[in-house]
Design a protein around this nucleic acid. Structure first.
Lengths: 196, 196
DNA sequence: CGCCGAGTTGAACTGAATCAAGAAACGTGG
DNA sequence: CCACGTTTCTTGATTCAGTTCAACTCGGCG
C-alpha cells in the first residue's frame, strides 16, 4: 500500500513534463481520474457514439479506424502508451463519432469525463491550461502524421514507424499497419520482403 | 472615421461566436493585433522559418504546401476567410517549419505575435481560453480533413469542396486543387470532364 | 488433430502517374 | 489595347505500382 502511495501517478508524470503541476491542483484533479482496463479488441468508442472522455494510455496500443463499404476498414491512427487518446473531435463538438477507437492489445487507461473537465475549467485555474496542452498535444500528432503522408512513400512510412517504435511494431497485426501506412496487407508484405 | 469605429472587429466577431468576450478583455487584446496585407503568391512563412504568429484571415485564401524533390510540391491545406492560419505546429514547438504558407490571392490578416500571446496568458484570464479555442479550431480542421481523405475518393472530395465553397473554388488554380484533393492536375482535369 | 485467421506469394488487371504536345488563359510591356 | 511570352489547362498514349483474386503456408487454439 505504501508503495502505491509513493509511486508517482503516470498521468501526473505526463503533465509535469509539459507544465508545472502543484500538489494543491493535483489533489483536486486526481480523484476525478478513473482507471479503465480494456482487453484486446475491446472498443473505447464505436462509430455513432458521442465521446465523453479523454483517455491517457498508461500501457497498451489503440487504433482508430473507419468502416468503408460492408467489410473494409481503414486504420488511420495508432496510439501508444504515454499518449492521449479518444475521439477528440467527437468530444469537442459532442457529435457522434464517424470512427471506431479500439484496443489492439490489453490496455490500461486513465480518463476524465467531459463534465468533470468543464467543471474544472471553472474551479481550478490549471485545468484550462491542461485543456490547452491536451489539445496542442493531439494537434501535433495529427499534424505530424499529415506531413508524413505527404512527404514519404508507404515503405518510408513503414521504416519511420519501425525506427520510432521498434518495440511496439511487432505487436501490431500487419493488416492494421498496412492500412495505417496506406497500402493493402499484400503490398506491405512485399515491402517487408524488399527491404529485408 | 466614425464608421470604422462602429464596425465590429472581424476577429472579435470570430471569437464571440465561440466564447464570450467582454469589452474589458477585448480592449486589452485589440491593440496587440496587427493587420497585414499579402499579395498573390506572397509567403506568410517559408520552409525552415519558425512561425511567430497566429493569423486570422479576414479575406483571401491561403495554401500550405511542402516541396518534394526539386520541382514538385504538394498542397495539403487550403484556408479561407474567417479561419485561423499559420504553421501552428512550428508555432507550438518553435521549431523550423517543414512547409510553406502562401497567399494564393490578395489576403488580409490579423495576427498575434507569440510573445504577446504568452504574456497575455499570464495577464488576461480569457487569453488562456482563447488559446484553447484556437487550438481546438485548428484541430477540428485537421481531423475533418484526415477523415475526408479516408472516407472519400478524389472526385468525391472535389464535389464536397465544390458544395462547401462554390464561390471560392473558382479562384484556386486547378493545380493546387488537384494536389489538395490528392491527384495530379491531369487527373483532376479528367474528373471535371467526367462529372460535367 | 484439424480448423481458422493471419501472412506470404503468384498472376492478371487497373486506375492513376508520367510523358508529351497542343490549346487556352493570363499578364506585361510596348 | 494589342501582341507576345509564359503559365495553366486539356487531351492522348504509354507505363507502372499497387489492387484484386486466388492458392498456399504457418501458427495458435479448441
Amino acid at each position: 500500500m505504501d508503495e502505491l502511495k509513493d509511486k508517482i501517478h503516470p498521468l501526473r508524470k505526463f503533465l509535469s513534463l509539459r507544465l508545472s503541476v502543484d500538489d494543491e491542483s493535483w489533489s483536486r484533479l486526481e480523484p476525478q481520474i478513473k482507471q479503465q482496463h480494456f482487453k484486446r479488441n475491446d472498443f473505447l468508442l464505436k462509430q455513432g457514439e458521442v465521446e465523453k472522455k479523454i483517455y491517457f494510455i498508461e500501457s497498451g496500443i489503440i487504433r482508430y479506424f473507419i468502416q468503408r463499404g460492408e467489410d473494409k476498414e481503414a486504420t488511420f491512427a495508432i496510439i501508444f502508451e504515454n499518449q492521449l487518446a479518444g475521439a477528440y473531435d467527437s468530444f469537442l463538438q459532442q457529435l457522434p463519432s464517424e470512427y471506431f477507437v479500439q484496443a489492439i492489445k490489453p490496455t490500461v487507461t486513465w480518463s476524465f469525463p467531459i463534465e468533470v473537465l468543464q467543471r474544472l475549467y471553472m474551479e481550478v485555474p490549471i485545468a484550462n491550461t491542461i485543456g490547452r496542452i491536451t489539445c496542442e498535444e493531439l494537434f501535433l500528432i495529427k499534424a505530424k502524421r499529415e506531413l508524413s503522408m505527404y512527404k514519404y512513400l508507404p515503405q518510408e512510412r513503414y521504416l519511420n514507424l519501425f525506427s520510432e517504435k521498434p518495440r511496439h511494431i511487432k505487436e501490431i497485426p500487419l493488416k492494421y499497419l498496412a492500412s495505417y501506412i496506406g497500402v493493402t496487407p499484400q503490398a506491405l508484405s512485399r515491402i517487408r520482403k524488399r527491404i529485408k
